[in-house]
Design a protein around this nucleic acid. Structure first.
Length: 182
DNA sequence: CGAATTTGACCTGCGC
DNA sequence: GCGCAGGTCAAATTCG
């Protein structure tokens, strides 16, 4: 499955400049599919929560729930003693107008899951940064309402330089545009 | 042959 | 307490 040969040369041509007139539109229209667990609906999209432990704390290797499958439980370190605190990584959501959901932001991502959303026809893809110690996560979702809208949600922040496969002016331009969306 | 992707199973939180 | 929705893992498969 070779990726798309072209890197969406458009984007700034004519559609919508960085102003993103639809920014508010989509935010307001999100309620259409915002029936997910009713949490953020109404109270801002994604508030930047405590970002103190996100930068360098390295999210503590996210030892969430271990799979207690029938496999081998492997005596973990002292059972019942969990000093793992609830680290709540902030999530930043960005919406981009693109035909492809694989937006190359310069980092290497490894897909680790894909789920179908209830109110969306398109599935949501879960990616993870392939860096040692960098467990930044990212999920890409496409609005069923507007197939041209791709919502990318970043979780955590990278603490390593961007490894770009190739430096083309076009890529740089694209990145600049992406950044200007902030 | 190694790395990345695919896909089903499983786990957790929330609502009813 | 059960079911639903969302999120993650891990084995198998495919690609380079």
């Amino acid at each position: 499955m070779e990726k798309y040969p072209i890197l969406f040369p458009m984007q700034q041509s004519s559609s919508s400049p960085t102003s993103f007139p639809q920014a508010s539109d989509m935010l307001g229209g999100t309620h259409g599919y915002g029936s997910l667990h009713g949490g953020n609906s109404g109270g801002g999209f994604l508030g930047l929560k405590d970002s103190e432990d996100c930068g360098t704390s390295s999210q503590g290797d996210g030892a969430h729930h271990m799979k207690s499958l029938a496999s081998s439980m492997e005596n973990e370190t002292s059972p019942g003693k969990k000093k793992e605190k609830k680290v709540r990584r902030p999530r930043y959501a960005f919406q981009t107008r693109s035909q492809v959901d694989i937006l190359d932001d310069g980092y290497r991502w490894r897909k680790y899951g894909q789920k179908a959303v209830k109110n969306n026809k398109f599935p949501r893809s879960y990616y993870r940064c392939t860096h040692q110690g960098c467990s930044v996560k990212k999920q890409v979702q496409r609005l069923s309402r507007d197939e041209s809208i791709v919502v990318t949600t970043y979780e955590g922040m990278h603490s390593h330089p961007i490894e770009k496969p190739s430096d083309n002016f076009e890529d740089i331009l694209n990145q600049m545009q992406i950044y200007s969306n902030f």
